[in-house]
Amino acid sequence: MPMNDAVHNYLLKQVGDEDLLQEIYAEFLTSFRTGLDAFRAAMEDQNQDRMRRAAHTLKGNASIVGETAMKQLAIDMENGVIDQKHDVYQNALDQLEDAFRKCL
């Protein structure tokens, strides 16, 4: 699983066990995919509340595993939704999708 070194080192320091680390990361990927899909679905429904909630969840998931770059993109996305700036959250979503693909 292509996890970047910084995230790997961070998680290893936190849980001290390679197998457990991989298990957590696998769960992160599943959750993150679900979160991105939820955001897109909310966007299609133009449901701001669900969009914000999905962005917030993505931020939390990235935070807890130490994916700081993805966390920052999720923050931008959440703020874009709050400020109702379509360009901002769309751009952040695209970058987040790219970043996520690189994790797979």
């Binding site: 849980v15 298990e23 957590i24 769960e27 959750s31 998931n61 807890i64 595993v65």
Partner: peptide, 15 residues
Amino acid sequence: DEKLVCFTVAAFLRH
């Protein structure tokens, strides 16, 4: 409600 968060915190609090 995020299983990932519960799972990770549980891993943090082992031992």
